[in-house]
Write a protein that binds this DNA or RNA. Structure first.
Lengths: 340, 340
DNA sequence: CCGGTTGACTATAACGATAAAGGCTATAAG
DNA sequence: CTTATAGCCTTTATCGTTATAGTCAACCGG
């Protein structure tokens, strides 16, 4: 129909006819083309889906995730795409939003390895970009070198002579567990980010001549600071073998640890050194300011979205963004060497 | 096709045939019905759109908005709908996400009166629910009695004898302005919530025999606490006629005001009383704990979404949720009566 | 043995849009 | 005067699904 052109390509027909069409369309109660028809014909839905295993509000509460969302939002605004956030899937055997929703592509954010959700999404055969996940063959991916970054910052701490370390880890297995984990669980790790950062810490520990197996790893559910604070208190309370440095895989958990230390009357960094990861905005403003790794979370979102909307070409090569060690005040040498 | 039934209505055909179909579909590379076709036929898109004039990340940073989002998210998860957040529209003359996006209905949240966006959305002729907005004819609406609630809390403060008041207002006109506003601007107010709360404060002031025209109103852009803190400092610095009570239209701004007072060496509530609105989670935990109005933000989201997905019948009557005055510690009588 | 009922599957016809090709007129070129 | 070109508009076909109506065999009671 010429009506289609009237709405979509003003330049293709005379202003006169266009006016007549728009006018008569209006009083026939026609308010422009319906997305359903367009979608069938052209495949264009006008929205990008975002899939993440956590409850939707968490995507924004968490400063790091929220920077990522802000990056996506910018691109969505520029191109006037909707951002369709998919709710977590409880029962994968039933029909899910993944199967039904009308979108142009999927951004997968921090979905655990081997999750059945991934297969389902790939089944939709739409453009897909993974972020902060293990590389999937034939799928675009954006991320950072988590292992290298973790090694850098852990090395920075260990060079100061710390021997007693504790690790606050992001989710290792998606079962809602928080607490001290054993080696077996670490082996079965399905969180790509947690695994890579653990490897980075391990690299640095080995460099420093410390047995990584002797370093306790506390897994903290959904990057929660209250949870991090709770477990930090558990291991800081100990009189003997108390860690002099805490490796936290996120700034948010590092703040939880910081709060725990303060509440136990310990001074940071005098009594304990604490490092984070992400460099969220609050990291520079805390007392003490957090030594951390800066990662371009917002740029990750922009890049993932840019690939979806076609601003960037779709490539299945891993797009690695750079990180930077930010040295602030939360790290110092151990006060009393407790022996090797 | 029987294929459709195989996917959508397992019970309608024999398990045997269903298996055969699913199997041969799978190796023909068919991964289930495409939304485009279903949408054309049935109109179902699998997602609810949310429209709000602020940048997307703000919807979640702000504790009150984020509670609202959490309410929507719950319902979306239960029914496995996507939640399509629409980006703010900069240029309404061009094609926007509103016109193009494939969704089943719109939730409009806090859009200013007479905004051209509203007409555009209504043009889509999909189920629509407004929240915290002026009532539109023939459109479902969810909200609270802002005027009554504001009157309650302002009355509570004024009964204690305060005569010098300052008001921190939510957005009055959508032009990004922050600062002291004149009566003309108040008259032209396009924010339904701001207007109703202003009216409630005015009611209470009149009840107390105070001329509302003499009470300064500071408008704060996008409910920002830093901005609220800045302007609060401006009027608390004054030696003469310094307000002894601050009416803030949100807890977030109240916290900004609290910070400002503290930084100026004033004690709350001894030197200044501060009230908020919303009862966000942080309101109970601050020092002093905030006296405020509890409003069911999460329930608003649930209800709006429930109407969209059909859990609740679509009615164009205003759905009013209830509020409650929460008396905590941030309000006291004025220390020195400064004369009437 | 027959009409009626049930159950299991199949055929048809739309939903609303746009890409692509086709027609028609007016002007330009030969 | 004929043919080519361009501009503008119209026709046709098709995207993938599901509601509806229809077919067909088997079964059942009379």
């Amino acid at each position: 129909m010429t009506v289609s052109n009237a709405f979509n390509r003003p330049e293709e027909l005379s202003a006169n006819l266009r006016q007549r069409i728009l006018a008569s369309a209006a009083d026939a109660g026609y308010h422009g083309p319906r997305p359903s028809g367009r979608m069938l014909r052209t495949g264009f839905a006008g929205a990008i889906a975002l899939s993440n295993p956590d409850p939707i509000p968490h995507l924004f509460e968490d400063s790091n995730a929220s920077a990522f969302m802000a990056g996506i939002s910018e691109v969505c605004e520029k191109h006037q795409y909707g951002l369709t956030v998919l709710p977590p899937v409880r029962d994968i055997t039933r029909a899910t939003a993944i199967d039904k929703v009308a979108v142009d592509g999927f951004i997968l954010y921090a979905i655990p390895d081997h999750s059945s959700i991934i297969k389902r999404i790939l089944g939709r055969q739409l453009p897909t970009v993974t972020v902060d996940m293990s590389k999937l063959p034939e799928v675009a991916a954006v991320g950072i070198d988590d292992r290298d970054a973790s090694r850098k910052i852990a090395g920075h701490v260990l060079e100061l002579g710390h021997r007693q370390i504790a690790i606050l880890s992001l989710e290792i297995l998606p079962d809602g567990f928080s607490g001290l984990v054993n080696g077996d669980r670490v082996q079965r790790c399905r969180g790509s980010v947690a695994r890579q950062r653990l490897l980075g810490y391990t690299d640095a520990l080995k460099d420093a001549g410390i047995d990584p197996g002797s370093v306790p790893v506390y897994e903290i559910r959904i990057n929660d600071d209250a949870e991090a604070s709770y477990w930090t208190k558990q291991f800081l309370k100990r009189k003997r073998g108390r860690p002099t440095a805490i490796f936290s895989m996120s700034d948010r958990m590092a703040f939880g640890a910081l709060r725990a230390a303060t509440q136990l009357g310990l001074k940071v960094p005098r009594d304990v050194s604490i490092i984070g990861f992400d460099d969220i905005p609050q990291a520079a403003g805390s007392t003490p300011a957090l030594t951390t790794i800066r990662q371009p979370s917002q740029a990750k979102g922009q890049m993932a979205a840019a690939i979806m909307v076609g601003d960037l070409p779709y490539t299945t090569e891993f797009q690695e963004l750079s990180t930077e060690l930010i040295v602030r005040e939360s790290v110092a040498g151990p006060r009393i060497a407790k022996g090797s």
